[in-house]
Every structure is written in C-alpha cells, then in structure tokens.
Amino acid sequence: MTVLVHRETRVLVQGITGHQGTVHTRQMREFGTNVVGGVTPGKGGSTVEGVPVFDSVRAAISATRANASCIFVPAPFAKDALLEAVDAGIPLSVIVTEHIPFHDMLVMYHYARSQGARIVGPNCPGVASPGVAKIGIIPNVVFRPGRVGVISRSGTLTYEIVNGIKEVGLGQSTCIGLGGDPVVGTSFVDALPLFQEDPETDVLVLVGEIGGTAEEEAADYIQHHFTKPVVAYIAGRSAPPGKRMGHAGAIISRGRGTAETKLAALKAAGAQVARFPYEIPDLVAAIVAREAHR
C-alpha cells in the first residue's frame, strides 16, 4: 500500500501530444509508471513514446482500463479536460497545468467531489512513490524508496527537500506536491489522513508557504489525529508582506496566514520545525534514528 498511487495505477496523459506531455510521459515511464494511453482530441490513432493516443477519455478507458489521469492541457481548456475525465469515471486526476482561473477550479473541485473523484493540483508537481509509480513532473533523480512521506505546497523546493532526504541515506514512501494555487483539489488536511493510514510511512515532512491558512489547518489536524512524527518548514518567513487578496482577504485570514502563526501552530501541534530547508534531512534522520532505538 502507498498513498494515492499503487501497482495497479494505469495512467492516461491528457494533452500527451504537447511538448510537456510528451517529455513527461517518457520520464513517468522511466520511473516505472504504467502509462497506458494519451488523449488529444483530433489526434486519436497516433502514438507518442509508444503510447496509444485517443480522441476522448471514454475511448481511452475502454481500450486501456486507465484509472488515473495526468493533465497537461493548456489553462483555457483544462476545466473541460478535467470534467471529461471525471465524467468518464477517472477517480484520480493530477493537474500539472498552471494559470487555471480559480473560478474554473471552483467548478472543477466541487464537481469532482460530488462525483467521488479526487484532484491533485492544479499547478503542481504531482505524486510519486519510488519503486511504484509517479504521476506528474517531479524529477526522477531525487527519489529513492524509503519510509519518509512528503507533502508540499511548493514545486522545485520540494525537489530540493526530497533530494536532501536521499542524500542523508534515507528514502521516500510517497511525495505529494499539492500546488500553490488559491484553490487546490487536495490540501494538507486532505492528504494527512492518507499518510496516517499508510503503513509504508514512518515520518512525515510538511513543506508550507506563507499565505492562506492551510498550514494552520494542517497543524490542527496533526494535533488531534496524526500520530506519526512530523518535520515542518515554511518558506517565505522574511518575505515582505503582500496583500494578494486585498481588504476582504485580510478579513478572512485575520491574525493567521503569516509564517509566525503557521510555525507557532505547527510547533504547538508537536511538529519539529526546520528554520531552513537544509535542516530538514538532519531532523528527519534524527527522528528515524530515535525511532529505531525504541
């Protein structure tokens, strides 16, 4: 058992004929992912990287029994691509596409939820379980199978941290990049229970950013429901304050959403807090060593 992906995951790549779709289809396959097909309307019948391309998700599923999708479709068309996947019965869609309007994402998220489907992203690096499967774009080189779980709102910073875990001789169970957009399909609080229940994960690394209150909500969940050790890092501690959402936004997050409130909440929940990314691997290694002596 792993988180979100497993050995029976059969991935469909929506937007496979685009540059990114093609490059990452190859890299997902090199990782060991079972990429069974691609979808680009109008290009059905061709192949990309040896993978058959279909005109619709429905056609792809009947030919390949795909049960997950990785979406690279450009932002103006991403909503339609996701709705098509959900309507065809795909239970898990990882959306890599960036710059999707949040009004589109609101419809996508609530529709998917009403149909019992999960979205990871948008604007995210995706999900990877070394030795099992990867859906998304995290570089293959940073991984090594192990028992450290990672949930992050960042992209490249996640690669850096996952790589750091490898460099101290440890490995990862599953890494999920949630994406940093205003509306995400899977939040920290949605992902934490998956790691709590995952027998492959012993320690969890949580990488947050300033803005929003997702880390505070994660801290609340950790305090009450999460029993495994957690190492947390928040990027942007010294960033100048910006009011992305203007006045009304400040009202929603009154007294929350800064690096200080996030770090304080995570500390109070029992997480070990790293001040810099390079402290994370050592904190994790210390926890692993301590647990081994129990």
């Binding site: 992050s152 709102r153 960042s154 992209g155 490249t156 910073l157 996640t158 850096e160 940093g180 990488v207 950013e209 300033i210 890092y233 990027a235 942007g236 501690r237 010294s238 960033a239 001040r275 810099f276 990314p277």
Partner: peptide
Amino acid sequence: IANGAGLTMATLDVLKE
C-alpha cells in the same frame, strides 16, 4: 535568480539569515 516561488522564498530566508 531561482526557479519556483517556494525555492525563491526559501533562498530569501537563507540570505536574510
């Protein structure tokens, strides 16, 4: 010069430190 908002912010944190 970095790539990605998270890495850019983390770099800023370290430089300030």
